[in-house]
Every structure is written in structure tokens, then in C-alpha cells.
Nucleic acid binder design. Structure first.
Lengths: 330, 330
DNA sequence: GTCCTCGGTCGAAGCGCTTCGAATGACGCA
DNA sequence: TGCGTCATTCGAAGCGCTTCGACCGAGGAC
């Protein structure tokens, strides 16, 4: 059973090969009757264009690469949601997705790009000083990053607007009447590294709180139970009037609740807690939270990449955070 | 900056295009000196073969499709481990991975296969009566399934040897001196559907237990807490001397522990519990368990697929289960 | 010395598709 | 009636690579 080629379709429909091509691509006007005849033949013969031939002739593979950080410690639900959304959205634009793991590093990227296997790249979870970033800059293929590297100049990035997320949490607590609030952030080293999202969250939180005349502090927070507990204790010792807590540290969320219980402070009766973390964690602990919009991130990332493939300019975008109110604030 | 083609390499090395091709593919003998000269040119020019052209000429895309069930309710860690292992193994065989979600259904499979985009397919979590199975049977492209559909005749499947897994659990309990043991299995409907792995586990469990002269029963088990609790209670009412429990139901594992606690039976002091479930669940609850070897499944699946791509016959394989002893048995 | 063999290399014919320029008619207008 | 126009359609030239058959000398067998 030989595979059906465009020539077979042309013969069957009684037209030239190029006519079939134009019917399928819509790049030239074809009369309605011819068009229909060709489409019928396509259906009857069960024709599917050969991807390789198409890519070779058109210089477009209709495939994008998705580079995932498939290493331990990633938040899996977020990652899967993201991947699912990328695949689904890409299909809407008639593209397929080539899956790569970050551990092939820059070489892997160079390889798929140079081989014209993909038209563009989507990289998730780029690090602040990522060795792949300079490469992306002078690659002919467009790319979109999820997350912001240290220097995002000239790159297209998509991320949650963490500044606004911090502000949103502060505003939520303020509206509920809390006057003295605190942010438990990422571990010290994360700030030292100059990680963008941690800093931006803190800045947004402090600015909003201050703007509303609240008393607010922000402290870093390690991830073991003992360290979290002592951080929480110190916080309440120094600020006995504290009634609102924002936790921006996935790993510490669970421990914070334990620590509060140990201190005899009830949530939400004595202390309101807002988390900035993936949905599943917040959901499990019934925490009011700003979630990581993985689905939307994937969709937007693909949209931007497709725009760049069409030669359109595409700036970075920050997604607006949304607060989901659960049982940990009042 | 035009991209470097094989013709550029040939010119640079002073040989024919075909010679470069043969050096790169190794399909014909080339003298050491010529060979070296070509390889040098390749390096100097930074040549990467164009994937489309290669696929077109050779009828091999060097890409395999990975069809994942990216729906809610999947065990994510297992899925990710699997995907990671597939990508890594495929790379070892010089192949890339096209990611697809199951919800494109049979059409998606037909599409990528007919377009010669991929050379073979890997489908995870095929259902017992999967509409894609008949399609796979008469597809020219080889495929490998993870899990066994109702009729696996003529298909290549990879899965954990659940029969042996059931036996292993029974044996473990027997060796620890338990004389009366039970299997809490999948929900009733799963058996009614004739789901292979559930039945095989039960058969293996009962055969091994009986063979060792134990008193063993197997009961299905629903997944809500109340139903689990009542199943457990009924079990102990009917068999007061029960001291060993095998749970083959991911969703119920947590509830079983709760139910035992509610009945005042301590684990492992009064009852030993063995689970057949993904590593993360067992790890979290510190349960002795037979784990789902996702990493190995991925590796073996790719290995089989590559064998089929080389025209070798490839039968289904069952992976040998391994028991990890944790704190729930004594 | 002649013929054959064989390792090593070359040339050219596609693989199936896109795309550009040109050909073909039909039609309207002068 | 003749000619320009426009809408359609066609033909052919690649895209970059693999692969088949052929070619070419050098060495061995006789």
C-alpha cells in the first residue's frame, strides 16, 4: 500500500499538483468548483501531506519545541497543566510539539534549531543565569520563555505578575481589616541571587501595604520545619499584633500552618494566611491563595510564539494574578 | 547567514556530496583519511543535517510519538518519570519525541503517522477497549503500548507483571509469619470490565497464598472513605484473625490506614500492610510496597519500539515487580 | 602481462512538496 | 474586431538529503 501523495490527488482530481497545493494552503485563489473537486479527492484517497517534504519545501516544520525542566523538585501538577495547555494550543495553530528535557542543555537546542526540526522554542523555568539564554538571543528561530531571566532584554517572556500578586495579597488582608501583616518569602539565598520573582513579590507587597498605611514586614524563610517554626516564632515575638500572613514559598506552606498551630494561633481566627503557590497545594490545605495560572501561561506562551513566527513583534507579558478565597482568611 | 548544507561540507572537504552522506551515516566504508577530512569540515562549518530533507529522502523521521493521557486523575509523578525516561532513552537511539495528548484520539494518531512525522508510537495507559487499538493494528508504523488492552494479540505491550506482584505481596506476608491475609483490590466495576491488571494481581495473590497454605481472601474496594472503612470492617468481622493486608488501589491506600486506625488496629503492630502503588504514595505513608517502575517502563518501551523500527520482532514484556520494605509490615 | 576483484568514491535520480512565473481563456471595452 | 485584464490554472525548478549503480585504480591470481 503505497502512501498517497499530492500527485495522486492531482491525478484523481484532474488538476495540476500546484493547484492541489494551493487549495490546501489557500495561498492563491482557486475556483469553488475546482476547490471542491480537490477536497473530495483528498477525502476519497485519504491524503495526508508528508511533513518532511512540506518542511523541506516551505522551510516551516510546523513544530515547536517544548523544553521542560524534567528534574526532581518541580511542581508536577503545574508542569503538566502547562504542557497540556501548550500542546492543545499549538494544535489550534496547526503545530505539533517536540518534547525536550532541559538536561540536553544548549546543545540540544542548537541541534533541533539547526536541523530545522522546529520553527520555534518554548522554554519553561529558565534560570536567572541560564546558559541557554545567550544562545536563544542569536538563534534565528524565535523563542518564548516562561519566567524571566536576569536580563530579559530582547527576549519574549511570560510570567505571572508577581509584583501585583504581592500587592493583591496585601490588599486582601487590608480590606479584611488587618493592620499588621507580614510576608514570609523565599529562602535568603534566593534573594541574594537576585531572583526576579521573589523580589518583585516582596516589593509589591510592601508598597501596597505601606500605601494603605499598614504596618508590614517581609522576612525570608527557609524550608525545613524547624527553620520555618523559628521564623514564625520570631515574627510573632517581634510583632505581637500580627494578624495577617502572606506565604510565598511553596515548600514552607505546610510547615507554616503547623508552626502556627504549635504557637497556639488558630487560622483564620487569630491569623489570616494567604499563600502564593500552585493550586493543588492551596486546595489541599484550603488556603486563600494567588495561584500559578499554568494553563493560561501555556496558552499565552504559544500565542506569542505563533505571533513571532508570523514575523510580528512580541513583547513580554505579565499575567494578572487572581486571588482565590478559601478558608484561611477572614 | 545561509544555513550550511551537505553540499557546503562536500565542497569544503573536496569530496562528493554522497561521500559526506556516507561518512555521516556509516552505511558504506570510507577511507580513514577522507572520513577525517569530512568530519573536520563538518565541525568547522557547524553543519547539522536538515531533518526534513533527511526524512524525505530516507523515509525515516527519527522521531517517535509519545501519546500521554494528560487528563486529570493520572498519577503525575509516575507520568513524568515515564516521560523523562522515554525522552532520555529515545535520545540515546538518536530519536526525538513528539508529544501528543490522548484527547486528539485516533485522528491524531492517524495524522502523525500518515504524514510520516514519526516513525513509531508509544501510547501510555491504553484502556481496555481503546478505540485506538484497532487503528494501531493496521498502521504501517510500529507502536508499543504501556499497559495491556483487552486483546493484546499482535501488539507489543509493556507492563508490570501484576500476577507476580500479587504473589510477591503474599509471599512477603507469608514469610513474616502471617497466616491469614487479604487483598483489597480495585472497585467492583473494574473487575467486571475484565481489566487485566486487577485480575492478574488477584490471581497471583491467591495462588501464592494458597500454595503456601495460608488463608487468603480477595475483596474489591471502592474509593470513598466510607466505603473503604466499611469494607475493612466487614473484612475483620468475617476474619478476626487477619493480620496481613495487601492494598491494590491507589486511591484507597490513604483511607485504609485511616480505617484501620478507626478500628483500633495498629500498623504494623496488629496488621501488616503492603501496597501496590506508585512510589510517591507509598513513600509518603511509609508503606511497604511494590512500586510502579515508571522509569524502567519508559526505557523498555523505547527499546522495544526501536527494535521494531529495525524490523525485529518484539513481543510484549512484563517487568518483574520489586518489593520495597518500609515501616508498615513486620 | 592480462584479467578480475574489490575497496573507495562519484554522479545522478529521486523523495513529496511549495512557489514563482507564465500560459490560458473569458470577458469587457474601445 | 482587436486588445488589455483579470481570474485560474499549469509547469518546472528547486528544497537538502539518501541511495543506487557505475566508475576507477591497485593489488592478487594465473
Amino acid at each position: 500500500m503505497r502512501t498517497v501523495t499530492i500527485a495522486d490527488v492531482a491525478r484523481h482530481a484532474g488538476v495540476a499538483v500546484s493547484t492541489v497545493s494551493y487549495v490546501l494552503s489557500g495561498k492563491r485563489a482557486i475556483s469553488a468548483t475546482t476547490r471542491q473537486r480537490v477536497l473530495d479527492s483528498v477525502r476519497v484517497l485519504g491524503y495526508h501531506p508528508n511533513a518532511g517534504a512540506r518542511a523541506l519545501a516551505s522551510k516551516r516544520a510546523n513544530v515547536i519545541a517544548l523544553v521542560l525542566p524534567l528534574r526532581a523538585g518541580m511542581n508536577l501538577p503545574v508542569l503538566m497543566q502547562f504542557a497540556t495547555s501548550v500542546v492543545a494550543t499549538a494544535r489550534q495553530y496547526d503545530h505539533d510539539v517536540l518534547l525536550m528535557t532541559a538536561d540536553e542543555g544548549p546543545d540540544g537546542i542548537r541541534r533541533v534549531a539547526a536541523s530545522a526540526m522546529v520553527d520555534g522554542l518554548l522554554l519553561m523555568d529558565v534560570e536567572v543565569r541560564d546558559t541557554r539564554v545567550p544562545l536563544l538571543r542569536d538563534l534565528a528561530e524565535p523563542s518564548v520563555l516562561i519566567g524571566f531571566p536576569a536580563d530579559a532584554e530582547g527576549l519574549t517572556c511570560v510570567d505571572l505578575d508577581f509584583n501585583q500578586a504581592g500587592a493583591l495579597c496585601a490588599a486582601h488582608l487590608a480590606e479584611r481589616g488587618h493592620r499588621e501583616i507580614a510576608l514570609l518569602g523565599a529562602p535568603e539565598v534566593v534573594y541574594e541571587r537576585g531572583t526576579g520573582f521573589a523580589e518583585r513579590t516582596r516589593a509589591g507587597f510592601l508598597a501596597e501595604a505601606t500605601g494603605r498605611g499598614l504596618h508590614a514586614v517581609a522576612v525570608p524563610c527557609e524550608e525545613t520545619y524547624d527553620e520555618v517554626a523559628s521564623a514564625v516564632k520570631l515574627l510573632f515575638d517581634a510583632h505581637p499584633g500580627l494578624t495577617g500572613l502572606v506565604v510565598h514559598n511553596e515548600a514552607a506552606v505546610g510547615h507554616v500552618l503547623g508552626a502556627l498551630r504549635a504557637l497556639g494561633r488558630a487560622v483564620p481566627e487569630d491569623v489570616s494566611v494567604v499563600a502564593i503557590c500552585p493550586d493543588d497545594i492551596a486546595e489541599r490545605a484550603r488556603l486563600t491563595s494567588v495561584l500559578i495560572p499554568a494553563e493560561e501561561l501555556g496558552r499565552e506562551a504559544v500565542r506569542l510564539l505563533m505571533a513571532k513566527l508570523d514575523g510580528l513583534p512580541a513583547g513580554s507579558i505579565l499575567l494578572e494574578p487572581r486571588l482565590t478565597i478559601r478558608e484561611s482568611t477572614r
